[in-house]
């Protein structure tokens, strides 16, 4: 089946089986491997991407369901310079092996874009959908708290 959608601002299309998940389509067909596939059943959050600005698990969505939608992956949230979230993650040492990091950054970006005032409790609640086996989460929460000021100011990343 042909599917066409917008990926990180560019129109893309792919020929996929209906059973292909959005995560596999993005990685294997479209070559953007920043989206990581961990558990493949919706528990770990590593594959989180933004669909029309909302954080969703790309392993729990079929590629064909993304038809005509706007998809943003971790690649779409990074440029030549570190984004505020990336800089804060580096500053706070909010990653070690880095496998889960794309999911945390995409999730945090969606959260702070919609709720720049999210407090520590809210951030922790939202992060409950992402698993990290290295950091113990505390530096991740600190990094997101730190990045908030950038979202409050210009509402973008």
């Amino acid at each position: 089946m042909q599917v066409a959608f917008e990926l990180n601002g560019d129109p893309v299309n792919a020929d996929v089986e209906p059973r292909t998940t959005l995560a596999d389509c993005i990685r294997d067909r479209l070559g953007r491997t920043g989206t990581h596939v961990g558990c493949e059943h919706g528990v770990c959050g590593a594959c989180t991407v933004l669909v029309n600005g909302e954080a969703v698990r790309s392993c729990l969505m079929l590629a064909v369901q993304a038809q005509d939608e706007k998809v943003v992956t971790i690649e779409g949230l990074s440029g030549d310079q570190l984004s505020p979230l990336q800089a804060a993650f580096r500053k706070h040492h909010a990653l070690q092996c880095g496998f889960c990091t794309p999911g945390f950054i995409t999730t945090a970006h969606a959260l702070l874009t919609n709720e720049p005032d999210a407090d520590q409790e809210r951030i922790r609640e939202v992060l409950s959908g992402n698993l990290c086996r290295c950091t113990g989460y505390i530096p991740i929460v600190e990094a997101i708290l730190d990045a908030r000021s950038h979202y409050a100011r210009d509402g973008e990343k």
Partner: peptide
Amino acid sequence: VAHYQVRNR
């Protein structure tokens, strides 16, 4: 019910 990303769908 569930988590942030699951709640969006």
